[in-house]
Design a protein around this nucleic acid. Structure first.
Lengths: 243, 243
DNA sequence: GTCTATATACGGATAGAC
DNA sequence: GTCTATCCGTATATAGAC
């Protein structure tokens, strides 16, 4: 499974997300024609992500959002009841997708090493496809009201637990060796996060998500599988390096 | 070198930082009695970090800061000319310290493996001592004016380059094996960042910075040193685990 | 459905008393 | 050095025309 295959199999796009958000908020959104609503929601979220990811959500004014979307501030309030509600809508959406995609990816793999690699790939590919959403979600998590914040932390922990459980299972079956499955999972998550938090840096270096995934998996396996040494898995990353 | 030793050797505290900031901004700060100025700067920065790290710097009003410090808004403006200036003062301070401490730590070690371990420890220990400053610096980096932002990115890259150079040197002398010194450095940095970005999580798990440092170093070395296997370096982390 | 115009509150920053 | 009082711009959100 590489990124191109992932995209073909799972078309996660902004439009997708907007349709789902519209369905979930049909009651509160005042626009009743689905086509209009989804089209404008796309413009709204795209603009909100663009402005927020540059200067922060708090710093984005409704006038900014109005200018960027081409809708008046009055019209915007037909799609959400307050700026905070907009933040909430954007935050809650991403969580469900991550859980679904990870579970699905892991279910399709046999054995701890394969499951772990599949989970790492799935997370990286998903965050690649939805990078602005992931970045936003991370950066604005602390600005959520307490109840939403708890949900965000819970979502983050469940990703970590999914990784830790795979690792612990590998240790039980003798495939992996580590005294600390949970801490190992935490460090893996840190590496996954770096991909969408420092996307600009990696893009400047012309590093693809496929190579990043291979490298991360190699590093993790070198640690978890005793005696794997340097050569075998590492060959893959050697293939396409520049110098 | 463990954290306790690091602290004894290098007393990096909030007060320290404030004294240095005062010296650097003596011209602009209107308060001329050093003792008063430093004392109040401490209150100001502590309050600003507390509020900002919870809700974001933009969301912190001068009235909030006034309430938390016990100083009036009028008085606050004797210490900085604008809210943006306050942000700038807080951001630029941290950078110098990191560079100084890392260089010093690396200089005191012989050989690539020792240098790398020393750099990892120094960064983790420093971010432990100044966690709110590190967290703030990361989260508010994107809100800086362009010139400051460039400086922030440069600082971040130089830390990465320091790690990458050590690794490349290790590869040259045959101590390490990796096709990608720079990418390896990036991933190490991601792990270092996780310590101060997710401090609450690790505290809840009763994980000390010393154990986090040992574990990180073990993981990195398992990858960089072929055939290190599972047992030798890993014994260290096994010593003090709970179950 | 979307616009313009506006109500109302809160933000950063300053002036001048003490 | 610090406070109180206040200026003035801009923020969110709404009302009502089209």
């Amino acid at each position: 499974m590489n990124y191109a295959q992932f995209r073909r199999r799972l078309p996660v796009t902004g439009k997708n997300i907007c349709e789902e958000i519209y369905r979930r908020h049909r009651g509160e959104i005042r626009i009743k024609k689905a086509a209009t609503a989804v089209h404008n929601l796309e413009k709204i979220f795209q603009a909100a992500l663009k402005i927020s990811n540059r200067r922060g959500f708090q710093a984005m004014s409704m006038r900014d959002l109005s200018r960027e979307t081409g809708l008046s501030t009055g019209a915007l309030y037909a799609y959400f009841s307050s700026k905070e509600e907009l933040l909430k809508m954007m935050q809650e959406q991403r969580r469900g997708i991550v859980a679904r995609v990870l579970d699905q990816a892991v279910a399709g793999a046999a054995g701890p090493a394969e499951k772990l690699a599949a989970a790492i790939r799935a997370h990286l590919y998903l965050s690649e496809a939805l990078q602005p959403w992931f970045y936003f979600s991370f950066m604005e998590a602390k600005n959520l009201p307490p109840s939403q914040k708890k949900a965000a932390v819970a979502g983050s922990r469940s990703t970590e637990k999914l990784l830790a459980d795979i690792i612990a299972d590998g240790v039980r079956t003798g495939v992996f060796t580590t005294p600390e499955p949970l801490l190992t999972a935490s460090l893996i998550k840190a590496m996954l996060q770096d991909w969408y938090l420092k996307r600009g840096k990696y893009r400047a270096r012309r590093l693809t998500v496929d190579r990043y995934a291979e490298f991360t998996i190699t590093m993790v396996m070198a640690f978890l599988i005793p005696g794997i040494g340097a050569s075998p898995a590492r060959g893959k990353t050697l293939d396409d390096r520049q110098g």
